[in-house]
Design a protein around this nucleic acid. Structure first.
Lengths: 119, 119
DNA sequence: CGGTATCCTTCGCGATACTG
DNA sequence: CAGTATCGCGAAGGATACCG
């Protein structure tokens, strides 16, 4: 369990929520597919292991960003999805950051072409 | 250097931007104080070492979220501040996440009092 | 005061094997 | 298909000493 007993500052949680290599990508992907199975996520998120995926999904659920439904019967089937409140809200934050990411990429490209051109 | 040579996906950057225990807190604190010296940040951010602070500040500067001014003369003096574009923008994202953090804290409190009451 | 370098510990995470 | 358990390595991060 990586979640602390108690938080005093909301900022500490921000860190824990997005801590780890995969959380943001998982959230992003779930938002993209809306309702998605474990195996689907595993296919779509390149390089992630099932163990990591499950670990991170569990944490995201504990924070109330993600939820899941277990369907009865065989073969087993589950659906992961963002929670209406916090889950969908955090996508807004990720979108802002994603734009900043784009800006950064653009700047780097520009720097590189400038270098090649002359200086 | 923890920043990669090149990014293909903006989401990878989101992770790198907020990676590490301290980045969000540092950004938050700089935003709060607007222009701030290293020693001031060190005092205000509880538990951080000077080494970590400088390390993270450097990364934030490389991403263009933070910038600094070096003043001439002794004693040495610098001022760290958020960049107008990306720096101030990311605060919006942090604010959203901070609210989610608050929600989570409230829920936990409620759960605890409910437990005490009965069940 | 601001910043760099080094050493050492802890923990994230990948690989792998196993269960219902 | 969904999920748990174990183990080992490398990176993150804390402490500390030193430089301009």
């Amino acid at each position: 369990m990586k979640i602390r007993k108690e938080y005093t500052c909301p900022l500490e949680i921000i860190h824990d929520i997005l801590k780890g290599k995969w959380k943001t990508v998982i959230l992003w992907q779930i938002n993209h597919l809306k309702k998605v199975s474990l195996s689907q996520l595993e296919k779509d998120i390149k390089g992630i292991s099932q163990k990591m995926l499950l670990e991170q999904l569990r944490e995201l659920r504990e924070f109330g960003l993600v939820d899941k439904i277990n369907y009865e019967g065989y073969p087993l089937r589950v659906e992961y999805f963002l929670t209406e409140g916090k889950g969908e809200k955090i996508i807004e934050a990720l979108e802002i950051m994603q734009k900043i990411g784009r800006e950064y990429i653009e700047e780097q490209k520009k720097k590189n072409t400038d270098k090649k051109v002359g200086n």
